[in-house]
Amino acid sequence: MSEAVLCVTDLTVYYGDELALDSVGFSLTGGKLIGVVGPNGAGKSTMIKAIVGSILPNRGKVEVFGSTAKRALRRITYVPQRGSVDWDFPVTVRDVVAQGRYAHLGLFRRFTTVDRDLVERSLELVGLVQLAERQIGELSGGQQQRVFLARALAQQGDIYLMDEPFAGVDAATESAIVEVLRSLRDEGKTVLVVHHDLSTLREYFEELVLINRKLIAHGPTDKVFTPDLLQRTYGGKLAVFSNKDTTLVSA
């Protein structure tokens, strides 16, 4: 076993009286693409938000490289759902990507050549250089999703937590994003992705986290992507057709 990059223990979140996330815990190593799977309302987004510090969990601990320090937590990069922001906001594509550098620059440090290069390189990686001066609302859904990805790349974190990056994007964008995620993994980064399309799980992710408020299972895709565990994750909402070597599922 290599060293744990991200270790989540007993993560519990209540919304009012409602238990949204019930003592979820797992530990991830570097250089992996990990899918987070579960039905709607299973607490996937809640879990991601609690890990990145966007919401305060009622209980639980998040350790990054063995540390709970705020500085360490900033090595986590968060890619929120596209629908969570106002795309009419008066900023350009480049402005949004540059926000990825705020983690390192704070309030006062000026953008250096290094920062600007990182922003440009991130724009290149997601294919948005030509649109860099556009107001973000002029972009298509897939392009907006790539803006968020570029912002995460510019942040240069070690752990990427992405909330449904493939929601509402076209096939070309999806494969472009997957390409970028694979290269991140190959650089040794840990990439955790909330994903809805069960048909591409095997192809994209080597590890899965199955949750439905509680952790149902966590492990290599081969071991965890089974009719039994999926049934337990989705309850009765899932039809599973399986024979000896293939599993067909539809949520």
Binding site: S54, I55, R74, T77, Y78, P80, S84, V85, V96
Partner: peptide
């Protein structure tokens, strides 16, 4: 613009 990301 993006309070969730800002918090992170």
């Amino acid at each position: 613009f993006d309070p969730g990301f800002a918090k992170s």
